[in-house]
Amino acid sequence: MATETPTAIEPGAGPSVEDRISQLRELFADAPEVGKAALETVLQRLASDASAAPPPPVESAGRVGSRLGKVSELTIIVPFAPGGAARLRAFLRLFGGNLAGADAVGSVHDMRFVFLDDDTRMLFATAYDGDWDAYIDDFASRIPDFLDIIDSAWEGWPGIRSPQAKDYLAKYQITAEGWYVANDLTVAETRRLRHVGQAVDEFVDTIGS
């Protein structure tokens, strides 16, 4: 079971913390007893830990999506085109479900393709560095076929080279209400740190031998 770590409430803009708490209590009035009791426990802990600095708020990742530090989330729920689910599943299985080829993109932390509702819709979710639309022209030029194989499984996909591609993706993207990522490091920084760590180990091994 995960440890419950209450964090201080982010004051931020909008309604005051007190107003947000009283709204929360109102909404929880109809909640199951177990939820209601849990809320009171958590609120008490938060109140007794008022000295803790609030975490930085989640920012917008451009047109749609949330960002924490340098890492953004992208969640898309999109209807499959007729036959699209079968095509995409067969394509993903070609790689045993492992899209390691995405290493080359250099800004993608993770990706998942989840088939929903009897293969009629798909959830695509990814964590990535920066803004996705900044590099879409690069993808259209460098890896158009890969993207069009995947995305042509979706209803009405205009093609990655189409000027409408960005609008299409934005239309089906849903901003996450909550977003957490452990490291405020880009993929490039993580890789560099791995190299640095290896080099330090080698160095220590060498001078120690």
Binding site: V105, S107, Y135, D137, R142, T186, V187, A188
Partner: peptide, 8 residues
């Protein structure tokens, strides 16, 4: 570090 087409 990121897949880029410098020409665009």
């Amino acid at each position: 570090t990121i897949l880029t087409d410098v020409n665009v």
